[in-house]
Design a protein around this nucleic acid. Sequence first.
DNA 1: ACAGATCATGATAATCATTATCATTACTAT
DNA 2: ATAGTAATGATAATGATTATCATGATCTGT
Lengths: 145, 145
Amino acid sequence: MDAKEKFAGYLKDKDLRQSQPRDIVVDVFLRTERHVTTQELFQLVQKKNPRIGYATVSRTLKLLTEAGLCRTVDFADGAQRFEHEYGHEHHDHLICTRCGAFVEIYSRKLEIIQDELVRQHGYEQISHKLQIFGICPKCLKKHKS
Amino acid sequence: MDAKEKFAGYLKDKDLRQSQPRDIVVDVFLRTERHVTTQELFQLVQKKNPRIGYATVSRTLKLLTEAGLCRTVDFADGAQRFEHEYGHEHHDHLICTRCGAFVEIYSRKLEIIQDELVRQHGYEQISHKLQIFGICPKCLKKHKS
DNA sequence: ACAGATCATGATAATCATTATCATTACTAT
DNA sequence: ATAGTAATGATAATGATTATCATGATCTGT
């Protein structure tokens, strides 16, 4: 099942309708590099169809999140960002506070420890977000010279 | 060195001035349970001195963050929150998405793995934030019944 | 295919948090 | 004390998100 089918399934499940604007927003989102803000996605969508409004983009991103197709990321720069989730490996982010560069990180050990912590507290895990802030190698070099 | 002294040192270091409003904001913040929003702290400060404006509270929280006395926390409820940092053990949060309850969590193993990941990518770590979202035991019980 | 019901849309306004502006006030060093 | 400069607080500006609502699109049962 691909991402579009999954979204269609979610809409059906919730008695929501499929529509041209939604299709376009989903399409553009899926074709886009990750970590877009609503504003950025809106501009991309406008290129395809200038009639589509900001509200629809925002609403569709919310639906996509609920459907498990994307998730929000916080880069501590004041903007809400969205990235693909479905069909992608889970990962967290290591972000440079100086230039904004980031790398995606993953560690199985890290995940296992988290699961343990959650269980210890009697919670049922839904998701997690880990952001590590630091200074990237490039910026470290610049600073030293 | 207590928190107030550290803040005074920071101000001196940056050639900033100590003032009555700043003192009051810092005082109220330090006496407050953790995880306040700017709005909440503003209301608390108003009780002590109604002349102090929102902007000063906001500005002082920023200074406190820069001084390493507090850090921001993201509970995914749209509001920026601040919590004490100085003199407190580092910890992360396990948050119930249904009722907002949370517990503070800490694992030394987790920290070590993160350090490794950062080093592997040539970054220099500044800080990190881990939020785990889930459903708390109480809400799990409610749901089942 | 049609009609009616209902949902989605998009333009705009409302909301909310944060940040900028700037005249006035307060602090500091001399 | 005084001059210089920073801090304050009222207000406006900004930016992101959410609500409103008349209009248009979609779906369902027949």
